[in-house]
């Protein structure tokens, strides 16, 4: 185990592995193109729970149970849980934690919370702290609508750049126990504010942070985009992908091309499912990574990816008061260990 700093905020990690992962999603996500990759698809948005906040907690706790089952572990094997969500005071993560009662680190980087969790867990595991961590993130479309937008039954029109908060949760087991997938390196993002003001266009607010983190990661590691099978952002959506590609090419001379993918763009059939710019929310990157990307790394179809989840750091109050919207992105590189390595 070791952690080696490289550049301003990039770290090479040795001896930390990605174990099992689990993703549980809502019905709309289950109708999307990635349906086959999720561990469980809810038949409805959780109407059996007394509130959508409780439904979100259940979404998270189901994914945790599945991840532990797959790993043949019980809660007592988990040394620390690192998790985040979108709701005020992290009630999803913290209220779920009162049922498992394991040591808990709550994190918030909005929709980048999952990679913040992975990065933080990798750093502490890599320095001989805990040896097994559960990294979690969850979001629920309807609880997010309640907090950030309007009452659910109020009619209004979404703008074309608006994103659709995903009902999804993703859980990953990180461990110092050797497995096929290795945490390779990570970069802790910095908050960038390029003056975007529209909460219905988070892509413009997050794209600069995504590109900044990506470019700093590649520079610090002495790599190019060719070292990765895919560079995956969290929820830039269709518009944000175009912005990020343009920004990287024009300002940083990094041509990302087809390598650049986005969890929010992949989660839905954007035309058919009427989600405008694509999916968002902490559960978006967590679910798509834990379902689709982790499985593709395990099967060997992908060998190395850079996950760069993106977060727009605003609150309903901040934009009503006229504040611009800062963005953040944390990056984590995961590599498949080939035979004999």
């Amino acid at each position: 185990m070791a952690v080696q700093r490289s550049g301003e905020s990039s770290y090479q990690i040795e001896g930390v592995y990605l174990g099992q992962t689990a993703a549980v999603v809502g019905p709309k996500e289950g109708e999307g193109p990635l349906a086959d990759w999720f561990d469980r698809i809810w038949p409805d948005e959780g109407t059996r729970y007394p509130s959508y906040e409780k439904a979100e907690q259940a979404l998270l706790s189901e994914a945790e149970s599945i991840a532990l089952d797959k790993s043949n572990m019980t809660w007592s094997d988990v040394d620390v849980v690192v998790g985040g969500d979108l709701l005020d005071q992290l009630i999803t993560t913290n209220f779920d934690a009162r049922s498992h009662s394991r040591p808990m680190l709550g994190v918030f980087s909005a929709c980048a919370s999952f990679t913040e969790g992975l990065a933080l867990a990798s750093l502490i595991l890599g320095q001989g702290g805990p040896s097994t961590a559960l990294v979690t993130a969850a979001s629920h479309h309807l609880s997010a609508e309640r907090q950030f937008r309007f009452p659910l039954e109020l009619g209004y029109q979404r703008s074309p750049t608006a994103s659709w908060t995903a009902t999804a949760s993703g859980v990953a087991v990180l461990s110092t126990r050797r497995s096929d997938l290795r945490i390779d390196s990570l970069t802790i993002g910095r908050v960038l504010d390029w003056g975007s003001h529209d909460p219905n266009d988070m892509a413009s607010a997050m794209a600069p942070a995504a590109v900044d983190t990506m470019v700093r990661h590649l520079e610090a590691m002495g790599e190019t985009q060719a070292h990765y099978d895919a560079i995956v952002t969290g929820d830039l959506g269709r518009f944000g992908l175009t912005l990020a590609q343009h920004l990287a090419a024009e300002e940083y001379h990094v041509s990302l091309g087809e390598k650049l993918q986005d969890c929010g763009e992949m989660l839905y059939d954007i035309q058919q499912q009427d989600v405008h710019n694509g999916g968002s929310g902490p559960g978006c990157s967590a679910g798509v990574f834990s379902g689709y990307f982790a499985e593709n790394l395990r099967s060997g179809r992908l060998h190395r990816i850079l996950l760069v989840a993106t977060g727009a750091l605003f609150s309903p109050k901040s934009y009503q008061q006229g504040e611009s919207i800062p963005g953040i992105a944390h990056a984590i590189a995961i590599t498949r260990q080939e035979e004999g390595q």
Binding site: P160, T161, W194, G195, S196, D201, S204, A207, P208, F239, T242, L243, H246, L247, E250, E251, N277
Partner: peptide, 12 residues
Amino acid sequence: RFQDYANRIRPQ
């Protein structure tokens, strides 16, 4: 430059 580009291509 970034905001100009975003304004130019933003879906309307």
